Computed example of a mutant assay.
Amino acid sequence: MWSWVLHRITGVLTFFFLFVHVLDTALVRVDPDTYDRIIETYKNPIVGLMEIGLVAAVLYHALNGIRVMLVDFWSKGPQYQRVMLWVVLGVWFVVMIPGAGRILYNTFAGH
């Protein structure tokens, strides 16, 4: 059940990010100077930490989505759904460590 809840939450978070991303990118056509100023406001540590949250949400949502498809469309999916959840969490952790490290490096040291 918690994987279902987390899947829904990460889907909504990803949707809201994409919504804001489309809006701020659309500004480049309306007023390029305003777009540049908004992009500059994103270059701070708080947004860097939010990027880690975004990567975590998108990665979990994608990996769990594959698991959900396997449970739904593979005849043995329901039998292995718990094992697949642990695989998803393991892969998520293995990919998140270097991803978060890179984002933290870029945020705090890699200007």
Rank of each mutant, 00 (worst) to 15 (best):
Q79I: 15
D31I: 08
V68I: 11
K43L: 14
I38Q: 12
R29I: 12
T107G: 05
R67K: 07
V22E: 13
Q79A: 08
V55F: 07
D24K: 12
L27N: 01
D31T: 09
V28E: 09
I97P: 03
A56R: 02
L54H: 11
F93S: 12
I46C: 03
T34L: 15
I46Q: 05
A26S: 15
G99H: 08
V22D: 11
W2V: 10
I103V: 09
R8C: 13
L23K: 09
I97L: 00
V83Y: 12
G53R: 07
I38S: 12
T34F: 13
A57W: 00
P45E: 15
G77P: 03
D24Y: 14
F93W: 10
T14Q: 05
D33N: 12
T25P: 07
P32I: 10
I97M: 03
G48I: 08
F108I: 00
R82G: 09
V5K: 09
V91P: 03
W2E: 13
Y80H: 13
S75G: 08
A109V: 10
V95L: 15
M69W: 06
F108Y: 08
V71L: 00
G11Y: 04
Q81N: 14
D24R: 14
G53K: 06
G77R: 02
M69D: 07
T14P: 03
P32Y: 10
V88I: 04
L54C: 06
G48Q: 03
F73N: 10
W74I: 03
G11V: 03
D36N: 11
L23F: 14
N64G: 01
H61V: 01
L63Q: 05
V91F: 01
D31K: 06
R8D: 10
H61W: 09
A26N: 13
G99P: 08
W4C: 08
A109S: 10
L89I: 13
V58R: 04
G101R: 04
N106Q: 15
V71R: 04
I103N: 01
